[in-house]
Computed example of a mutant assay.
Amino acid sequence: MNGTTAVVNDVMTHRVVAMRTGAAFKDIVQTMQEWRVSALPVLDEDGRVVGIVSEADLLSKEEYGAEGDVGRYARVQHLAEVRKAVAVTAGELMTAPAVTVTPDATLARAARVMARRRVKRLPVVGPDGTLQGIVSRSDLLKVFLRDDSDIAEDVRCEVVARLFGAQAEAIRIEVRGGVVTLVGRVRETALIPLATRLVRAVEGVVDVQCALSGPPRHPDLDPDLPDPQRSARA
């Protein structure tokens, strides 16, 4: 990931278990137990992802399976769940269409999709819709396990050197626990906010403490400019 933006393919699980639309209820439950997962992608005959079957989908059979446990009003209000209560195959149980992401999507995009669609994992599909892997919330957090030294190297090469050129050598970069601190003086103070934003976007950065400032003032040469040191002593 050094020098490049991490994408879903960098962190996703490539070995994934999935079910066909015709998979039976008990086979789905057994597979979830064996693989210790709470949801499974559902594939059509061509291997394309057409939905997701989760523990919540399966539990509808417990909640609404017994006719005496559900009143008429509840059946109307929760029609989809009631239908799943009598379903026996993955195709009938699944939530469709599946919310998916591509291998080249950035981690930020995957995180936004998860948050907006309120899902914990996303099947990763190729251009033809076939299953390539799966990415979970915990996978997206792996980027924050990067070594501080690697983060510092990326900050120096990809941000500081490119923005400040020859001045970059005078900028001190410290990284502790993913928190980046920038210390030094630069001539182009207008670039400081941009540097902070770019550093924050580096993979694995938790926070940025920016202590960059402009060149020292010379009141004797620039009488119209305030002397910050004299103001501080006043």
Rank of each mutant, 00 (worst) to 15 (best):
148 D>K: 14
205 V>K: 10
122 L>Q: 04
74 A>I: 06
1 M>A: 06
79 L>V: 15
97 P>I: 07
207 D>P: 01
48 R>P: 13
92 E>W: 03
111 A>S: 14
60 S>A: 15
146 R>T: 09
153 E>H: 14
68 G>D: 04
171 I>P: 12
54 S>G: 08
119 V>T: 05
225 L>W: 05
95 T>E: 06
188 E>W: 11
163 L>S: 11
62 E>S: 06
149 S>L: 12
181 T>C: 13
183 V>C: 14
6 A>N: 01
37 V>D: 02
88 V>D: 13
26 K>R: 13
193 P>H: 01
9 N>F: 03
182 L>E: 14
7 V>E: 03
126 G>H: 10
79 L>G: 01
34 E>Q: 14
40 L>V: 07
213 S>R: 10
152 A>V: 07
28 I>L: 07
76 V>N: 09
16 V>R: 09
153 E>G: 06
125 V>N: 06
131 L>H: 14
122 L>A: 09
146 R>Q: 07
86 V>P: 05
72 R>A: 06
226 P>Q: 02
61 K>S: 12
139 D>Q: 04
74 A>F: 02
180 V>Q: 03
143 V>L: 11
118 R>L: 13
101 V>W: 00
55 E>N: 04
74 A>R: 08
71 G>S: 07
119 V>F: 02
144 F>K: 13
71 G>R: 12
156 R>H: 07
100 T>V: 14
189 T>M: 13
135 V>D: 07
118 R>W: 00
76 V>P: 01
158 E>P: 00
229 Q>A: 04
130 T>M: 12
173 I>A: 11
106 T>M: 00
179 V>R: 15
101 V>K: 02
188 E>M: 08
206 V>G: 01
123 P>R: 04
18 A>T: 00
93 L>T: 01
208 V>S: 02
55 E>V: 12
222 D>E: 15
78 H>A: 14
172 R>N: 12
229 Q>E: 15
228 P>F: 11
77 Q>H: 04
49 V>I: 15
176 R>L: 09
225 L>I: 08
90 A>K: 05
191 L>M: 14
18 A>V: 00
41 P>L: 07
98 A>Q: 10
36 R>H: 13
128 D>E: 15
98 A>M: 06
220 D>S: 11
159 V>M: 10
81 E>M: 13
125 V>R: 02
205 V>R: 05
17 V>Y: 08
8 V>P: 05
158 E>G: 01
19 M>S: 08
157 C>P: 00
67 E>Y: 04
85 A>R: 11
17 V>N: 03
216 P>E: 05
125 V>P: 14
175 V>I: 02
122 L>M: 09
64 Y>R: 09
49 V>L: 10
1 M>N: 03
35 W>F: 06
140 L>W: 02
51 G>Q: 10
194 L>H: 01
145 L>T: 09
192 I>V: 08
195 A>E: 07
132 Q>S: 08
185 R>A: 11
60 S>Q: 15
7 V>F: 00
98 A>C: 09
126 G>L: 10
146 R>P: 07
206 V>E: 15
